[in-house]
Design a protein around this nucleic acid. Structure first.
Length: 584
RNA sequence: CGGGGCGUGGCUCAGCCUGGUAGAGUGCUGCGUUCGGGACGCAGAGGCCGGAGGUUCAAAUCCUCUCGCCCCGACCA
């Protein structure tokens, strides 16, 4: 492609509204253009990248026996009533929904379990038709609370979603395992460094699930990993062995002490410097909204205890309570529950309507300090079993760096990642709700077992840049780069250079290597190099002063400082070989 | 939703406090010189200052409302 014929506009400075590098660089290079918050135009260069990623996705899915299809983005409310998700998704606000001219309620699909299940239940009648895994690559719509970071979290984004249907739980697990391999292959081929982690299954529902995290400091997700055991889990899900804290040397009776103004663990430690943080138990109050099958929904107040040096994990708590929504209690609710100002909540003497729970970090803690449910008062030297019953206890805590893994004696580290893929074993949640059944060998009606599998295609592109860039610009992995070769012609109009560049361009294209040929006139060499660095095409061939001897300068985007003088034929052979090796 | 910040040629910003002829850099157009890491000269085009109302002889500037965008927080007591 001749660059002068492409709509090629680059900016010298970062757009003011771009925060992360991937966003700023793609915007500067004209790959994307923001239309509104979380809504982007994909320019021609970006589209080439996205198509590359899509084709890798297709290739791997097709190789695993999946079938591509396409479902409507526009969906009727009734479908979502069948699965029972309409209310929750509307309440969350995530669902773009509206009425058509007849007044029927519709939504723009944030995901497609309902549609696929409806389709498959019509198509599949017999066990002989199973297993089957279908997928599509399509734009998804989600009214995110806070779209941000360019393509990382948009209201509209490109997703590959796949759905497997099996005759049994065991077969579902097999389909799931196969898909896990597909995912590893896809992300490896995209040139990403990633970590598969155990994950919470969230609003989609179901049992086991794993996320594929691109290793990046700018990631929105925290991950707990252990190098020794290979354990890796999203912080929302991760479990660990909590290090024990110091014990008191002598046992004394519980007593209530004035603690004026001490509303935080830090403030309390100043008042009682001899106490370790592990002997402070904090009590957090939450407002919980329950999904009540009969009564619609109901609210309640839950108090959760946790050791002073630990944090409550709201995802775990919410799952345990089977809550529709979980929020910290308001000041008024705290006052009603504790008869005190905010900051003095404790397990003793809570209002009757409060349900008391404890995180497992409180287990074995003796002689602890806790809130007095009275302003400016705390209890000291409290013992479970002696002064009060230990409340209903479960794991509601967030894993911390330095904790011991549950499957060995390795230590946990916390890293960050960008979620580019998520695979679920759904079980029968949707097939049961929507009656997706089949006849087995014995003519018995059985419910299908489902799995679902998503890849954020546009997010893959953004995370590739988040992971691969430098001062000068983007560095695309060869398999997903917009072009394989950037052919930089120093002086357009020079006969020798024109001839050699044209030859290289034509021969490479004929060999299946796509070339972006910068043959702009009146653009100085420096500007061409800056542009080449910015767009980040991995292989570079510079046609310049030695064109007469068929000599070019070869370099790669990962190391533009190292330049090699090569014969043109040699360079073309090398480019062709590298492209073939990359599986592009 | 709550809090903070910002809307001025395509892009990055100044001007606003203290009201009085709308600016710079970059980009764009033309001509000439230059030509291996964002060259230079000359000549140009391009903005009802996000929108609406108000105050005033006069508003980018002051006041009110509104829309949009960005960041932080989702109150860890």
């Amino acid at each position: 492609m001749r660059l002068s014929r492409l709509l090629f506009v680059t900016l010298r400075e970062d757009p003011a509204d771009a925060e992360v590098r991937s966003h700023a660089l793609m915007a500067r290079a004209g790959f994307i253009h923001k239309l509104a918050a979380g809504i982007y135009v994909y320019g021609p260069m970006m589209w080439r990248v996205l198509r590359r990623i899509e084709n890798i996705v297709r290739d791997e899915h097709d190789a695993a026996g999946c079938h591509e299809m396409l479902m409507p983005a526009l969906q009727p409310r009734e479908l979502w009533e069948e699965s029972g998700r309409w209310e929750r998704y509307v309440k969350d606000g995530i669902l773009f929904n509206f009425r058509d001219r007849k007044g029927s309620q519709m939504c723009l699909g944030p995901t497609h379990e309902e549609v696929i299940t409806t389709f498959v239940k019509r198509q599949v009648q017999s066990y002989k038709q199973l297993p089957v895994t279908l997928y599509q690559i399509q734009t998804k719509f989600r009214d995110e609370i806070r779209p941000r970071f360019g393509l990382m979290r948009g209201k509209e984004f490109i997703m590959k979603d796949a759905y497997s249907f099996d005759v049994s739980e065991e077969k579902m697990a097999e389909s799931y395992a196969l898909m896990r391999t597909v995912y590893r292959n896809v992300f490896t081929r995209c040139g990403l460094r990633f970590t598969p982690v155990q994950a919470d299954s969230g609003a989609i529902g179901g049992c086991g699930s794993e996320e594929f995290m691109v290793d990046a400091e700018t990631g929105e997700d925290g991950i707990a990993v252990c190098r020794a055991s290979g354990y890796a889990a999203n912080l929302e899900k991760a479990v660990s062995v909590i290090p024990a804290g110091a014990q008191p040397s002598v046992e004394v009776a519980m007593h209530k002490e004035p603690t004026p103004g001490a509303k935080s663990c830090e403030a309390l430690l100043k008042l009682f410097p001899e106490l370790p943080m592990t002997r402070l138990l904090k009590t957090l109050l939450y407002k919980v909204t329950y999904a009540d099958v009969d009564a619609g929904e109901s609210e309640g107040i839950v108090a959760v205890m946790c050791r002073g040096d630990r944090e409550i994990n709201e995802t775990k708590l919410s799952n345990y309570l089977n809550a529709l929504a979980l929020d910290l209690a308001s000041e008024e609710q705290v006052k009603a529950a504790t008869a005190a100002e905010v900051g003095y909540a404790g397990p003793i003497g809570l209002a009757k309507h409060v349900r008391l729970l404890a995180d497992s970090s409180v287990e074995g803690v003796k002689g602890f300090l806790c809130g007095g449910n009275e302003t400016d008062m705390h209890y000291l030297d409290v013992y479970f079993g002696r002064d009060l019953e230990q409340p209903e206890t479960a794991d509601f805590g967030t894993v911390q760096a330095g904790d011991t893994v549950v499957d060995g004696d390795g230590k946990i580290e916390i890293t960050r990642g960008i979620e580019v893929g998520h695979i679920f074993q759904l079980g029968t949640k949707y097939s049961e709700a929507m009656q997706a059944t089949f006849s087995d060998e014995n003519q018995k009606t059985q419910v299908m077992w489902m799995g679902c599998y998503g890849i954020g295609v546009s997010r893959v592109a953004a995370s590739a840049i988040e992971q691969n860039h430098d001062e000068g610009g983007m560095i695309w992995p060869l398999p997903i780069a917009p072009y394989a070769v950037h052919l930089v012609q120093m002086k357009a109009g020079n006969e020798e250079q024109d001839a050699l560049a044209q030859e290289i361009h034509d021969k490479l294209e004929a060999s299946g290597v796509d070339v972006l040929w910068d043959e702009r006139k009146k653009v100085n060499p420096g500007a061409k190099f800056k542009d080449a660095d910015l767009v980040g095409i991995p292989l570079r061939i510079v046609v310049g002063r030695d064109a007469g001897e068929r000599k070019i300068e070869w370099s790669v985007r990962t190391d533009t400082a190292t330049k090699e003088s090569l014969d043109a034929n040699q360079a073309m052979e090398r480019a062709i070989r590298l492209v073939q090796e990359s599986g592009r």
